[in-house]
């Protein structure tokens, strides 16, 4: 699968409180309504920038640190974030992203600037920076996680196979 969109770049250690604040998370189960608040403590315009044409959230190290809230990947999906590219991910966010069907790519994001047009080939393990004309390789996901992502997340995997079939 190859995804195409523009890069929206942020820094290191972006925690799940920044991705979706606890004050919204606990109020509702409506992800579409909550998505307008995605990333708002860091960038109040995030939803408006990404929603119309989609985008890649590009960050530094330890993306998604902090709480286990699955609302974090869900509001990113609902804000039309196609994938998250980071130098590294916190453990629970990484699991949640795979389980909910949000592609996560671990690569050298120093080579990407805000606003670059990117093509991300998940199977080949390469990010093509169309703006710069460069390529950034990355290790594709291990088979267990790749299968969950290909099935569209853990719920779809269960529906398809009637339980774990990894």
């Amino acid at each position: 699968m190859t995804l195409t969109a523009k890069a929206f770049k942020y820094g290191d250690d972006i925690n799940t409180d920044y991705i979706i604040s606890g004050k919204y998370k606990f109020k509702s189960n409506d992800m579409e309504a909550m998505a307008v608040h995605a990333m708002e403590d860091l960038d109040a315009e995030y939803y408006k920038k990404v929603k119309p044409d989609g985008g890649f959230l590009v960050a530094g190290k330890n993306f998604g640190m902090g709480s286990s809230r699955e609302q974090a990947p869900l509001v990113l999906i609902h804000s039309n974030t196609r994938a998250v590219l980071a130098k590294g991910f916190a453990r629970i966010f990484f699991r949640n992203a795979i389980n909910t069907g949000l592609p996560v790519v671990e690569c050298d994001t120093d080579l990407i600037d805000d606003g670059d047009e990117l093509e991300v080939d998940l199977e080949a393990g390469v990010v093509r920076d169309v703006t710069k004309g460069s390529e950034i390789p990355f290790a594709p996901l291990p088979p267990v996680m790749a299968q969950l992502l290909a099935d569209g997340g853990l719920v779809e995997h269960f529906k398809k196979h009637g339980g774990f079939a990894l």
Binding site: E70, I92, N96, N99, V144, G153, L154, V155, F164, L166
Partner: peptide
């Protein structure tokens, strides 16, 4: 260990997790 909600659902359904 902490997991997300879909992980929690799978664990409650199957008694197993990856």
């Amino acid at each position: 260990t902490g997991v997300g909600s879909t992980d929690g659902a799978a664990a409650m359904a199957a008694g197993k997790l990856w």
